[in-house]
Design a binder for these strands. Structure first.
Lengths: 204, 204, 204, 204
DNA sequence: CATGAATGAGAGTTCATTCAT
DNA sequence: GATGAATGAACTCTCATTCAT
């Protein structure tokens, strides 16, 4: 029925609107400021309304962080379009990851640094969205291994190392621990580090 | 003179006491629980008194995180005692860093993840304590470079890369993003990654 | 006619369903948990629908408490089946009352303690269901008086006294004011009190 | 020191003021309306201030109900002044209890009907204030028993029965379940019931 | 020096109820 | 007849901070 469909669509739109707003607020003002009330104010609904669409605050931020992963997954997929060489794929995905983090630092925070979204995961559940993103990285690395293009043979170790390296880079930057490097064209330096890392793991 | 000196000494002692207590509380109960009132209660002074010694909460946590750095610097100094080989120094310092993080996760949080302590830095100031620690790492790496033991020649890039890698490892663990690896002897895997990293950067 | 009748019947069925559900919920989870939404959820209708059948929450609880009275009246009727001696009837009805209260404490609450159901009574109305139950007690007591089996001659005073005594017993228990007696086989003590009361009012 | 004493006194006065206000509000508007905010508004302090003097809402209402018991105990003590005959003491204490309940119905509610104050008692604690009041009743009854003035020999049963009877009377009245008797000079009838009860338990 | 007292601002959440559709 | 959507008005409680004394 057209009516049911429309209602369903409206409902989804409202959810999307809440999520979009929540996202905006903490991108602009940080996670701490993103209270239920603040969201409600901005969409010009009452706080109670929010609870019609989400169980509690954690559910909202878990959903927002899923949105973030959709975007990141998208970026990392686009990043290798038309590229066949697995090392080049790795490089491009690394840069895409960094770019995402710098363009959306609050979102990156939520996705990879804050405790909040993980706390809303019940024990039985799994960090699905994080996993999907992780799989993308694994694919590229698996190809690198299969084609003997990198000097690491264990997939787990390779993935963990590369991800950790990338996360360390961006999170130290985001949380302002790279002050010592400021003034030296920090972002250039970071890109240089990624490049260096690739040179190191590359076979020959 | 004696009087002034005593006053000065008293003041320092009080500061130290507050810091020690603040440290205790959030090592035991986490950052969230370490409210001004909680600290005041434990030292049996009033909250207002704390403001005689510290400008605000962030300043306290900045100072506490300095304590953390003293301990980390100590660990990293001990780690290389009697070791001359720079690569071995690097390995031991890496493990010491990891050990510190896992044994003091709340402190590591404060030192390298939380925004709070950095927010108390005025623009003119510098992250001194972080710097000292950083310098230790630089020394080892500089020796590695000088003696051509690693495949990186730029000190900045080398330090940034190695530190990022280490920080990524421990912070993803602390913030629970390594769920995918759980069950695979996570800590073993992490140590394996560090070892792998050393193999990669080592010359020959 | 048929249509109107059916509609009328449907309406009554819906009311009954709502009441039955409301009753269930607070028997299981207590008065506090029995929100309009909780009822609506369980019957799988919307909260708004409930307002088509009941003016407000109090009216629902008034009706539910009527259900309770139906059950209590039933118990008190069964209690004297085959018993002719009015004193014995009194005893059995007393025990039946106590039993009902202990087996349905939340319902007893609603019937005799909570304000909610009485608040829905307009001034002109009368507490009919309470009255019916009251009448049963009066009948037995009237017989006791007529046959000179008790030492009280005024029906009002006798009824008020006996009911008050019974209600006092069970309500102090339900609301946890008998802590001092805990450990002394409280329920035994209470039955002893009832028996004692009967001995006291009995003639000879 | 005078200063310390004054401060101590001020503190106690503030506590008393909060309690007095809390009491007023729910005497005037009922327990449900007696929110922390309502209290704060009336004393023209902020809600947060209340928490400087009381741990939480339950503690306030527990304290208020203690005040009530002080008053009740006082009334019940005065009630027997100059009276030696234990039966007469019992009568006077019964009337004093009833009078208290009718003059302070909301307070009686809190003391003997509402769950709230009991919930704030930890398991280890005991309902001290209720106990003290209870003891008064016991004393009188014990004397009645010792002097063989009543037809009950078991102190527990006697106390439980008499208290229950009295509580039943006043609580059914307070909670509006005596509608059937309205118009018959309800309060007279109730006093008649008390008198009747005394006649029944009296020896000879 | 130390503090008791106070607070403004804000948090998340729940509920009975209404009304256009 | 039924309801989805919405809300206003509450609720308790916590916190960093200030200031007169």
């Amino acid at each position: 029925m057209g009516i049911l469909e429309r209602k369903e669509r409206d409902k989804l739109e409202m959810r999307a609107m809440i999520l979009e707003t929540a996202q905006q607020i903490f991108i602009e003002e940080g996670f701490e400021k993103a209270s239920i009330r603040a969201i409600a104010d901005r969409i010009e609904y009452s706080p109670a309304t929010i609870y019609l669409y989400f169980k509690d605050k954690n559910e909202i931020f878990f959903s927002v962080h899923e949105l973030g992963f959709q975007r990141l997954i998208n970026e990392m997929t686009l990043a290798i379009e038309g590229i066949d060489d697995p090392i080049e794929q790795l490089r491009q995905r690394g840069f895409a990851y960094m770019k995402f983090a710098f363009e959306n630092p609050e979102m990156y925070d939520l996705m990879f640094i804050l405790n909040a979204p993980m706390e809303s995961l019940k024990d039985s559940e799994i960090w699905t969205c994080g996993h999907e993103c992780f799989v993308l990285l694994c694919e590229t690395i698996q190809r690198c291994i299969d084609e003997k293009r990198i000097r690491i043979s264990n997939l787990y170790i390779a993935t963990m190392s590369i991800w950790s390296f990338m996360h360390g880079l961006v999170s130290l930057k985001i949380r302002n621990r790279f002050q010592k490097f400021e003034g030296v064209e920090l972002e250039e330096l970071m890109k240089g580090s990624v490049e260096q890392m690739i040179q190191l793991i590359k076979n020959e």
